[in-house]
Design a protein around this nucleic acid. Structure first.
Lengths: 234, 234
DNA sequence: GTCTATAGACGGATAGAC
DNA sequence: GTCTATCCGTCTATAGAC
């Protein structure tokens, strides 16, 4: 995917790589923000250009069309996504591996919310630009990681769980703090999510994932052993 | 909110309610589908009109503007959302109440995915049209239900859990099957989600929610008592 | 009340000066 | 390589016939 964009760029200015990269980065960053806020159709090249501090025509010179710019933004995000699935391996400790994965996803939601939102927008509207990638790369990755989780369960190291759907749940639970941030803020009554809000959210999601797998999580030892005998005074 | 739209309609044709309702419903249904697929800006009045089987101008006659039509669609969805939060009460059985709530949310994702997608799109892009509703109605509702869950925990009927964030997780985990359906389909390698796919998804989400609360769920009794002593042969 | 025909605004893309 | 000025298509909204 990346290659497409790079080819166009190389054709025009093969030798001027140093400065080109800088401006290209600024434009991609601006595009990510505007696409996140307004969606593909809602975003305007003029707004992206203004935010990047370049004239509108420069955007077209670098990326050819609005469509190609959008693809370039999505490419950036997807490589980011792919880079964090590495902790889940057959010989890893389940609790450690899952904790690392959830933490990585939560960090991404906190630090690159716009990237998550562009991706979310693309999927909600049918994944017309990246459907092929999802059906190949992403599917293969999930199948491999799900097999690991199935193996953990077969070995009795975690409770049995639908591994593929567990990924859907982890993605949903973590990305909601980026994609649906405005709803989360509205409900907890704050204008923005603070660092401690994110920590609390992260601790909660870890609790959900670890308890789902029957693994102990911080502060659970005391109570995990006493399941609900209806009424324990109060 | 509903009142706004109703007022506009009443002004123009107070006595012709019977037929009006029918056409209005068709237009709202068409609008929901088109807004879901293309977002607010991507949707065109012409496409909505075609799908509803009326001329473009009729849309404007009924709803005034694209913006008002969008608000009307959102209104419909929000009343739908609100209607299902009733199972969670202090004297209900936690397992029964949570199961009913999750099932209701999953059913909505399966039956009205477009409604969910329009809502998701609105939130991802900052909830500019319904922010006020979220900060008032939704917030109040969540606070009340979260208090119930806190009480259950205080009484020892469920494990302690961050009640507010539990709602975020339930919404995310259930709505992902509507909003991110294209991603789910791509990963499991099917063009559409079948009824049995939805059942499997529902069972999984129930497992996640019930285990998170320390409640038994179907098929767990045998294993719940035996947490991971590292290596149980295999 | 309903629809056709059109006005008016806007945004993507590009020609051509520098 | 960079930017200004402009073209052309598209979309919302409405005027006015029926």
């Amino acid at each position: 995917m990346r290659a497409q964009t790079a080819t166009t760029a190389d054709d025009a200015g093969r030798l001027k790589g140093r400065i080109r990269r800088r401006q290209e980065g600024a434009m991609l960053k601006a595009a990510e923000k505007v696409f996140a806020r307004a969606g593909f159709q809602g975003a305007t090249m003029a707004e992206i250009a203004d935010l990047a501090g370049v004239p509108k025509a420069t955007l077209h010179y670098y990326f050819g069309s609005k469509e190609e710019l959008y693809r370039a933004v999505l490419d950036n995000i997807l490589t980011l996504w792919l880079a964090e699935t590495e902790s889940i391996t057959a010989d890893a400790d389940p609790a450690t591996a899952l904790t690392a994965y959830v933490r990585a996803k939560m960090r991404l939601s906190a630090r690159r919310p716009d990237a998550s939102r562009v991706f979310a927008n693309e999927i909600v509207h049918g994944a017309t630009h990246i459907g092929e990638y999802l059906r190949t790369e992403l599917r293969k990755t999930v199948e491999a990681r799900a097999a690991v989780i199935d193996q953990w369960a077969a070995e009795g190291r975690i409770l049995p769980v639908d591994a593929t759907h567990l990924f859907f749940t982890i993605w949903a639970a973590t990305q909601t703090y980026a994609d649906f941030e405005s709803q989360v803020c509205a409900v907890i009554g704050k204008p923005r999510l603070s660092a401690s809000d994110h920590e609390r959210a992260c601790a909660h999601v870890l609790t959900v994932v670890l308890r789902t797998c029957g693994l102990p999580c911080a502060g659970d030892h005391l109570r995990q052993v006493a399941p609900p005998p209806a009424n324990t005074t109060h």
